[in-house]
Amino acid sequence: MTVAAQSFSSRPIAAVARGVALPLVLLLVWQAWASTLPANTRAPSPAQVARAFETLAIGGGLVGATLQSLGRVMLGFLIALVLGVSLGVLMGSSRRVSRNLDPIVEGFRPIAPMAILPIAILWFGAGTPAALSIVAYAAFFPLLLNTIHGVSRVDRKLLQAARTMGLPLHARILRVVLPAALPSIMLGARLAMGVAWTAIIAAELAVGAKSGGGSSGGLGQMMFVFYAYSIDLNNIVVCMIVVGVVALLIDRLFRVAERRLMPWRI
């Protein structure tokens, strides 16, 4: 970004050393602290977390649980994508529609996905549909709001030019409005995927916590089971790390997709 940033990256080894220094020191302190505790302690330590990761990853159900959570996120995200983008195009392009629907959207927006969970459980029971609806609800708002923002800021001239070239309405939406709004929509999608991932963990955790840990499955429920039944904090930390890594991967994937899908942006 600036000159200073460049001079840092020009010495990559020093930069990497600086970068890993603090996390490494903290890990060592954590390990040292844990080794002073009696052998039967529940407190996690880096070494034990690493061991727990190995056990959980190989035949411990970690991969399955993660995939189950991810699958729900994908499906819920897709539902939100279809609803959010189509409603967003409508609200972004028509002031009349947006004036009428805006109050409702603003009314629902402060209601956290988790506040909807009790209703979802009442409607669908404590299973995948409830979790899905939470994910879709959570992902809906970033997608909707960013689509509205993108669509409402489409350059008028681009639309006028399309009309002078005789593009019918559907072609103007497909060829002008959507590509012009795509940067906003992609940003919305990335944010939506982030909150969707948080929401699924929360939903699975809560469903696990409130329905005796039985029926929901997924990474969030796995965490809760480790808390409720075995108080195995090492396993919980493993799950937390997986939550973080998946979030990071989702974010990076979307950034790559943004560059691929929009080569015209610098």
Partner: peptide
């Protein structure tokens, strides 16, 4: 990236 929710347990 580790959401606040994941800290709950």
């Amino acid at each position: 990236p580790i959401s606040g929710i994941a800290w709950i347990p």
